[in-house]
Amino acid sequence: MKLYIIFILFFTLSLSVQGQVINDSKKKSVTLPPVENSKETPESFAEQPKELDDYKGITSPKVTKDLSLPKKEFSMFPDEQFGDPGEQYIKQINKNIEDLKLTPEEVEQKNGSSTDQYFGDFKSNAAYVNVVYRDHGYVDGDIIQVRVNDDVIHPRVFLTGGFKGFKLDLQSGFNKIDFVALNQGSSGPNTAEFKVVDDKGNLVSQNRWNLSTGVKATIIVMKD
């Protein structure tokens, strides 16, 4: 009987102690306020780049927007062009060797006559003649000078592919016409074809020349 009473008392005391512990725990508990949704997005937490201009006293270089390269390389001799001396020498050697294989007539035909050419004298009783000329080869800038009885009547004539010329009133006796090669164009030699036609349309003379620079071709028209 005594043991039963003691057990009842011990059980009651245990329940009392456990209830006290639970009450104390409820009193000491901390309630955290609810976290409000932040309006900031994850991107807003990303570190914003700093301007280099304000970073520890270092300034960024200024960029010039209008950059342009020089149009032409600098040269102390802007208008002068230099060729390869070795290449020029080889070309001259090859030219000389090639000329050795040709006859003198072929060399003259290729390089132009180095002596004055005389195409003969012709008689005509016409009041005048038309003297015309053209470049019979490749039009490469051949220029001539025209003289009549040693007087310069056309100082510089650029030869084209078509005939052009002048009217010459014949005087009694000799009427000497000289064609002087002032250059050899870009390909050389100075090449031309000429015609002399009287006032009735008759052909008095016709011929061609291949001249070196400074060489002349001559024709004489004689009137009684």
Rank of each mutant, 00 (worst) to 15 (best):
G162W: 04
G162D: 14
G162I: 06
G162A: 08
G162N: 14
G162V: 07
G162S: 13
G162E: 12
F163K: 07
F163G: 02
F163P: 08
F163A: 01
F163M: 11
F163H: 10
F163T: 01
K164I: 01
G165M: 05
G165P: 08
G165Q: 03
F166N: 02
F166G: 01
F166V: 04
F166Y: 11
F166T: 04
F166A: 04
F166S: 06
F166P: 00
F166H: 00
K167M: 11
K167D: 06
L168T: 00
D169H: 09
D169V: 08
D169R: 05
L170Q: 02
L170H: 02
Q171R: 13
Q171K: 14
Q171D: 04
Q171M: 10
Q171P: 00
Q171W: 00
S172T: 11
S172Q: 13
S172K: 11
S172V: 05
G173P: 02
G173K: 07
G173Y: 03
G173H: 03
G173W: 06
G173S: 06
F174M: 04
F174E: 14
F174G: 01
F174Q: 11
N175Q: 04
N175H: 06
N175Y: 02
N175E: 06
N175W: 03
N175D: 03
N175M: 07
K176M: 09
K176G: 01
I177T: 03
I177K: 07
I177F: 10
D178C: 00
F179V: 13
F179N: 05
F179H: 07
F179G: 01
F179R: 08
V180A: 04
V180R: 10
V180W: 06
V180G: 03
V180H: 05
V180N: 05
A181E: 05
A181Y: 04
A181H: 08
A181M: 09
A181V: 07
L182V: 02
L182Q: 15
L182A: 04
L182R: 10
N183Q: 09
N183T: 09
N183P: 00
G185C: 08
G185W: 03
G185R: 05
G185A: 10
S186L: 14
S186C: 00
S186D: 09
S187N: 04
S187Q: 05
G188K: 12
G188D: 02
P189G: 05
P189K: 10
P189W: 10
P189L: 08
P189C: 07
N190W: 03
T191G: 07
T191R: 14
T191L: 10
T191H: 08
A192L: 15
A192R: 06
A192W: 12
A192H: 12
A192V: 05
A192K: 05
A192N: 14
E193G: 06
E193Y: 12
E193P: 09
E193N: 14
E193I: 02
F194I: 06
F194R: 07
F194W: 15
F194A: 13
F194L: 13
K195S: 15
K195I: 13
K195L: 14
K195E: 15
V196P: 07
V196H: 12
V196M: 12
V196Q: 10
V196W: 10
V197D: 10
V197C: 14
V197T: 15
D198S: 12
D198N: 15
D198P: 09
D198G: 09
D198F: 11
D199Q: 15
D199T: 10
D199P: 09
D199S: 15
D199I: 09
K200P: 03
K200D: 14
K200Q: 15
N202V: 14
N202C: 08
